[in-house]
């Protein structure tokens, strides 16, 4: 089984978000970038497929050279090869087209992406890859098992979960549940050394349509000061008469 894990390179969760150039560009100043948490769960699940079922695991990012340390980290965790499509990730659809092209060329059976990225939060790339490559698709995927080309998976629904049967080729939008937090792997010295000699292919992009353009960003309006109250009577009164939420 050939697995491709899509890795988006996102600001660490503790990052303060700021913008520059008249609020048109994300300010990377002092921001640490990491593997998108949803993708990290997927990558670890892929390592289990490799270890238990002999799958090969490639990782991919669409982005500039600045994302290579993130791909090297994925190699240090255990992926066999990395691919970077050398073009800035602007809109979800153009990223999905680049990824789909690699999926088709490489003949991957299973594409593991994340439910959403922590930057754009679009939750759109995996579904678009599925449609563009004619693969089956399971979003918000919590568990996945593959036998031959048969797949059993579960996904989160509002208020519970649902078990599904499908088949390869398949794209999933994954999240915690694929593996647990405690299963995540921190690269060790040996992994880091090995990662240096593993292939990181840089591919030039194919022509792709761009359907959306972010014009500018805004930050939420600053909050007024908290009203501290001493008694529950006062709180209930304010929630009813002022906030009108009960």
């Amino acid at each position: 089984m050939k697995i491709l894990v899509c890795i988006s390179h996102v600001p660490d969760t503790t990052s303060k978000i700021n913008f520059t150039e008249n609020d048109t560009k994300f300010d990377t100043n002092g921001v640490q970038f990491v593997i998108n948490p949803n993708d990290e769960f997927g990558l670890t699940r892929a390592m289990w497929f490799k270890e238990k079922q002999g799958a090969s695991v490639h990782v991919i990012n669409v982005g500039g050279p600045e994302t290579e340390p993130t791909l090297r980290k994925a190699l240090a965790i255990g992926a066999d090869e990395a691919i970077r499509v050398n073009t800035p990730a602007t809109d979800g659809f153009s990223v999905a087209q680049q990824l789909s092209n690699v999926v088709k060329e490489g003949g991957y059976d299973l594409v593991i992406a994340g439910r959403e990225s922590l930057d754009y939060n679009g939750g759109m790339v995996p579904g678009m890859i599925a449609k563009l490559t004619g693969s089956n698709f399971v979003n918000m995927c919590l568990e996945i098992e593959v036998e031959g080309t048969n797949v059993t998976a579960s996904r989160e629904i509002d208020g519970g979960k649902e078990t599904l049967k499908t088949s390869l080729p398949l794209v999933i939008g994954g999240q915690k549940g694929l593996v647990q937090e405690s299963d995540l792997r921190i690269p060790n010295m040996r992994g880091i050394m090995q990662a240096r000699s593993k292939p990181l292919h840089v591919k030039e992009p194919v022509d792709a349509a761009t359907n959306t353009t972010t014009v500018n960003f805004e930050k939420p309006a600053p909050k007024g000061a908290v009203k501290l109250v001493d008694t529950v009577e006062e709180l209930v009164n304010l929630l009813h008469n002022e906030a009108k939420v009960i």
Binding site: D91, G92, F93, A96, N121, G122, G123, M124, V125, P126, G127, M128, A130, K131, L132, F137, N139, M140, R155, E156, I157, D158, N211, T212
Partner: peptide
């Protein structure tokens, strides 16, 4: 943007060659 809505929207966008903005 329910769980089901988010699941199907990207597929609709590709089907109809439509630009998609979530959330």
């Amino acid at each position: 943007s329910s769980a089901n809505g988010k699941f199907m929207s990207p597929l609709v966008a590709v089907n109809n060659q439509a630009g998609y903005v979530a959330n």
